[in-house]
């Protein structure tokens, strides 16, 4: 165990302000002021808590079973970092990941119990596996109805206002949307090969957000709402 293990073991307590003496807290403050790695770990813990708080309850999709089935097979069991073999305590990211898995699993089981066996038409669910570099994992679903709806709405609005835009502007916007779509597609393919990669998950999500932002900007421009740049 190196010196940072002592610190990272206490980061959850530090973040929750739970179980630390003032002296321990002061010592952690002093260490965090000089250690970028531990600061990074703390930031990531904060990010996990924020993301967890932002999660919305969603009804289980009808196609969940194959993902659930895949999850309960031995290879998809959550990997615990080595530290877990030494002590029976869980870090906040692990607890969040476990609770997410439990939510999905219980939702799916309830649905199965109520609706019969839907295994015939199930898309895969991304495994909740902690990444090898111990960063918190953000599960990504490729089929996001809300996102697809938002994109479709904006594209429809843009098509309606298309005549109000300069042809060169339309060409530029379409070329840029194609560039973003390529980035999304490349990220998606990379994620399929490495679904637990935190960077790829975040990059995929950021690319999709970028597309939404550009569509919003272009639509605002086309509809002439007075905001030039959106």
């Amino acid at each position: 165990m190196n010196h940072t293990d002592h610190v990272t073991d206490r980061l959850s307590d530090y973040l929750d302000d739970d179980g630390l003496t003032p002296e321990q807290r002061a010592a952690l403050d002093a260490h965090l002021a000089t250690c970028g790695e531990c600061r990074g770990a703390l930031d990531e813990l904060r990010a996990v808590v924020t993301r967890a708080a932002a999660l919305t309850d969603r009804a289980p999709a009808a196609e969940l079973w194959s993902g659930i089935a895949a999850r309960i097979e031995p290879p998809a069991v959550l990997k615990m970092p080595q530290r877990q073999t030494r002590r029976f305590s869980f870090t906040l990211p692990q607890l969040v990941a476990a609770s997410l898995a439990l939510m999905v699993l219980s939702g799916g089981l309830v649905w199965v119990a109520r609706s019969g066996d839907p295994r015939a038409s199930l898309p895969p669910v991304v495994a909740l596996e902690e990444s090898a570099d111990s960063e918190p994992m953000v599960p990504v679903t490729f089929a996001d109805a809300q996102y697809d709806d938002a994109v479709a709405d904006l594209e429809q609005a843009l098509a309606k206002g298309r005549d109000r835009l300069d042809p060169e502007t339309i060409r530029v916007i379409e070329a840029s949307l194609r560039s973003i779509d390529e980035a999304i597609d490349q990220s998606r393919k990379a994620l399929k090969a490495d679904p637990a990669n935190v960077y790829l998950n975040n990059h995929f999500a950021a690319s999709r957000n970028r597309k939404l932002a550009l569509l919003r900007r272009a639509t605002a421009l086309a509809l002439g709402d007075g905001n030039i740049g959106g």
């Binding site: 790695e37 600061r39 980035a183």
Partner: peptide, 22 residues
């Protein structure tokens, strides 16, 4: 490791810099 986050420090590591290219 390629494809994963790698951290490098320079001096006392005070500033926080993220560099990402797919």
């Amino acid at each position: 490791r390629r494809g994963r986050r790698t951290i490098y420090t320079l001096g006392d590591g005070g500033a926080d810099v993220e560099l990402q290219s797919f």
